[in-house]
């Protein structure tokens, strides 16, 4: 029973990692760089939820979903703005230049956050009605159910967008070959903006789901979940959308199990150990394809 309980906790943590990891993987797919600022968009999402949660009715089903949706829109706009101002001028430059800029954007968001939101941790309001369901010894909180329902809904929506819509087809084309994509009439800049909007909206959803389960938020909260989500993206194979979801769930499970076995002081090191291991053993990730280097 204890094991099943930890399994549920691990799955709900993993679902949140998966949502953040999807943003990393999609941006990597179209632009081939690690968007370090993604973890801070996640933080902004949680804070957007915090402030919206004050305006909208708390602890109601509709209100909670409205807050979630509002935060996703705010972060989508933020993601597009970041891409336009910081990354677009660097199109075609070396990976390191873009990577360092991304670190700069990340620091900017963190410090602007400390200035605007205050550096002290804030306690996150209850967005959804609270109820604990017990199944013979196991406890499943309504917040955990919210995590599962929202994550599955978002994953299905994302699958539909990427596989069935025109813009999703364009995204896949772009990640396959940017030059060829623009040759067949795809507006690359527009698709990249859309990808950032989508990824950032997912980060916001992740931020809110994280905050309702770990209800203390501060401007530096994004760093560790962000890095772990990145590890999840690499674990599943970066650039691979189902891989990111799988990697997130696996990482959440591994971390929770290590904590349950008494290694709680090492919980932050687990993800990085997994990362180094996967890069040594299977650098392309679980679902990724190995690409030969062209000279």
């Amino acid at each position: 029973m204890e094991f099943l309980q930890q399994l549920i906790n691990g799955l709900s943590l993993g679902a949140i990692y998966a949502l953040i990891a999807l943003g990393y993987t999609m941006v990597y797919g179209v632009l081939r760089f690690i968007n370090f600022a993604h973890s801070d968009v996640f933080m902004v999402g949680a804070f957007a939820g915090f402030y919206l949660g004050r305006v909208l009715p708390a602890a109601s089903f509709g209100g909670g979903l409205l807050v979630l949706f509002g935060a996703m829109v705010i972060c989508a706009v933020l993601g597009v703005v970041i891409e336009k101002l910081a990354y677009r001028p660097l199109r075609g430059r070396s990976t390191l230049t873009v990577l360092i800029t991304a670190i700069g954007v990340s620091l900017l968001l963190q410090n602007a956050g400390q200035l605007i939101f205050g550096a002290n941790p804030k306690s996150f309001p209850k967005l959804f009605p609270q109820h604990n369901f017990t199944f013979g010894g196991m406890v499943l909180s309504s917040d955990q159910i919210a995590v599962f329902v929202v994550t599955i809904a978002i994953l299905l929506g994302l699958h539909y967008i990427v596989m069935k819509t025109r813009i999703g087809t364009a995204m896949r084309a772009l990640s396959f070959n940017p030059t060829a994509a623009s040759l067949v009439g795809i507006n690359n800049d527009m698709v990249i903006s859309f990808t950032f909007a989508l990824g950032s909206a997912l980060a916001a959803a992740g931020g809110i789901l994280y905050a309702i389960n770990y209800p203390s938020i501060d401007p530096l909260m994004g760093t560790l979940p962000g890095l772990k989500a990145f590890v999840a993206a690499v674990l599943g194979g970066i650039g691979n959308i189902p891989g990111a979801a799988l990697g997130g769930v696996l990482l959440g499970l591994i971390e929770t199990l290590v904590v349950a076995m008494g290694g709680s002081t090492y919980r932050d090191a687990v993800a990085f150990a997994v990362l180094i291991l996967i890069l040594l053993v299977r650098p392309s990730g679980l679902l990724g394809k190995l690409q030969a280097e062209k000279v």
Binding site: T97, T101, G104, S106, L107, N111
Partner: peptide
């Protein structure tokens, strides 16, 4: 201070 610092990185890189 840190805001100036991070802006410096971004502007410099561009």
């Amino acid at each position: 201070r840190m805001i100036l610092y991070s802006l410096l990185i971004i502007v410099l890189m561009i």
